[in-house]
């Protein structure tokens, strides 16, 4: 029974988002897509401990791949997701061969460099990608051949939500697997992991590729829902924001990644609407408060409160 509470709460949150933004389903959809991207980052950074500010590279690759696939080959949404996942995985694999040999700041710089290179390639290859004008003319077939993508975005939302749920379920299984335990081991102590005979380099590469595939799926969804891919998908700001959302929610916790994203985007949205000039201040204050008072992220709030109440009782006794 208890094992069902968390997944049910997450599903309820998804349903709630739908009803909270009836006139802005595009925004609700963007939140869910962002959750997928942040989940991919959680696998790579939170679990495997691979520092990256370039998860947007795989996201963008997935977006362009899915867009081009829909325009030139097949407009089926699920086939497009596979194209996006493959693009993200392949980019992660190729760049990962080099990246996974680096660590620390060098690695972070290199991940940023990969995203900038992708940005530049997409910008130059105007004939294929549309360059700065973006990739236009994406028209998706109905989901399962039945549900047309409507103007309001109802189909788009549930389609995205369904994909996010599948990704989440996959990650829940993955992080509990021997592979997932090994990633935590590498994060904790690469030396010890090597000394028990684990091929640390290949493990990190595998994690990076799986994370890349998931980021690619997020990108593919963006392309399919907004019917447009812009150069912004490769922007540094996206990768950086994803990182902030993850820190906010709690690294190395899948539910943390989901909650951090929803809270960040919601606050961002509300603050920006109420005060177009000072919203960044609100976001900054929120992130600082969490980092300061809840270093393990919002996901640790219930435990922290429990501790506070219990501690208070013990202190009083």
């Amino acid at each position: 029974m208890r094992n069902l509470i968390a997944p049910l709460a997450l599903i309820l949150l998804g349903v709630a988002l739908f009803f909270l933004f009836p006139y802005n389903l595009a925004f609700a959809t963007r939140i869910v897509i962002m959750v997928i991207l942040v989940l991919s980052l959680d696998l790579v950074l939170g679990y495997a401990g691979i520092p990256t500010l370039g998860q947007g590279a795989m996201y963008g690759a997935g977006a362009y791949a899915a867009g081009l696939f829909a325009i030139h080959i097949w407009a089926d949404p699920f086939a497009g997701l596979i194209a996006g996942a493959l693009a993200g995985a392949i980019l992660a694999l190729i760049s990962g061969f080099v990246l996974m040999r680096a660590s620390g700041l060098t690695l972070i710089m290199l991940t940023i460099a990969v995203a900038s290179i992708c940005h530049e390639i997409a910008n130059r290859a105007r004939g294929v990608t549309g360059g700065a004008d973006g990739l236009r003319g994406i028209r998706m077939d109905p989901v399962f051949g039945i549900f047309e993508f409507d103007f309001i975005g109802v189909t788009g939302y549930w389609y995205t939500f369904g994909v996010a749920a599948l990704v989440f379920a996959f990650l829940v299984i993955l992080v509990r697997s021997p592979f997932g335990l090994g990633l935590r081991g590498i994060h904790e102590s690469p030396d010890r992991m090597m000394a028990i005979g684990a091929p640390v380099y290949w493990r990190r590469l595998a994690a990076y590729v799986v994370g890349g595939a998931i980021a690619g799926i997020a990108g593919a969804l963006t392309a399919q829902i907004s019917q447009l891919v812009s150069l912004e998908t490769f922007a540094f700001a996206l990768s950086a924001e994803a990182m902030i959302m993850l820190i906010l929610g709690g690294m190395g916790r899948l539910y943390g990644a989901a909650i951090g994203t929803v809270v960040f985007m919601w606050v961002h949205h509300t603050a920006a609407a109420n005060d177009p000039f000072n919203w960044l201040f609100v976001i900054g204050a929120m992130v600082l408060a969490v980092v300061f008072f809840l270093p393990s992220g919002l996901i640790s709030l219930p435990a922290a409160v429990t501790r506070l109440i219990k501690g208070g009782r013990n202190g009083g006794a």
């Binding site: 299984i173 993955l174 509990r176 697997s177 021997p178 592979f179 997932g180 335990l181 090994g182 935590r184 081991g185 992991m193 028990i196 005979g197 684990a198 091929p199 493990r203 595998a206 799986v210």
Partner: peptide, 21 residues
């Protein structure tokens, strides 16, 4: 968990993604 990891590695199961550790 510290002891489970070396047993899994010794048995070459470290890349298994879909079974529980």
């Amino acid at each position: 968990e510290n002891l489970r990891l070396p047993v899994l590695e010794r048995e070459n199961r470290g890349f298994r993604m879909l079974r529980r550790a």
